[in-house]
Amino acid sequence: MIDSALDFWLWLQDGPLLGILLTVLAYQLGLWINRCAGGTPVLHPVIIAIALLIGLLLLADIPYRDYFAGAQFIHFLLGPATVALAVPLFDHKEQIRRLALPLLVACTVGVVTAVGSTLLLAWLLGARVETMLSLAPKSVTTPIAIGISEQIGGIPSVAAGMVLIAGAIGCILGPILFRLFKIREHEVQGFTMGLAAHGFGTAQSFGISHQAGAFAGLALGMAGLLTAFLLPLLVRLLGL
């Protein structure tokens, strides 16, 4: 009996079933805990799910590699999901056409500030190169940030963690900054949240108004694209 239970456990650790099941379960639990906490971005379902899984794997002494052998099937879907971002971008094409210049300029200023201030600050504070490169795409939506960090020699897992935390920080800072600087236009609030806090900021902006949400989604897509094109070039130029 003990033997067969052990066999089953070993078999389970070898296959993809356990990694996939644990990931979906932890996320469902994260959604549930987040709902109980009133939907605050600080306790984002993803952050809860990651914390739960890390705790569980450490307790059960399962190496990350074994977990990822299954979870990679979920991870793979980030690729098609990135391609799928073309659909919401297409849906915003009227707004893009109407406000092409302001959107492009604001997006460029935002992306350059995000990447520039991150690299400069991290360098000034004496961060390791891996830390710098993993922080660099922090404002960008996670699927694109993971792709970028693979390209530029950062650590995709650390980059993903930084993006998620940056998103939560953006959701807290946004409303405070908007009040301090009297930024009331919903287009501006949404665009700013989407650019600096990607999907987290977009979700929060839909709570302000549909218009704010639409501009946030637009900023998320534009900033992701622009960063994916700019950052690898910049890193090459800086010789990191």
Binding site: G19, P80, P143
Partner: peptide
């Protein structure tokens, strides 16, 4: 397909995030 994937986008970050360990 696109809207289904994007609705569950957040779930897709979890495996990479666990790599933080």
């Amino acid at each position: 397909v696109a809207e289904t994937l994007l609705r569950y986008l957040a779930l897709l970050f979890v495996p990479a995030g666990v790599g933080l360990m």
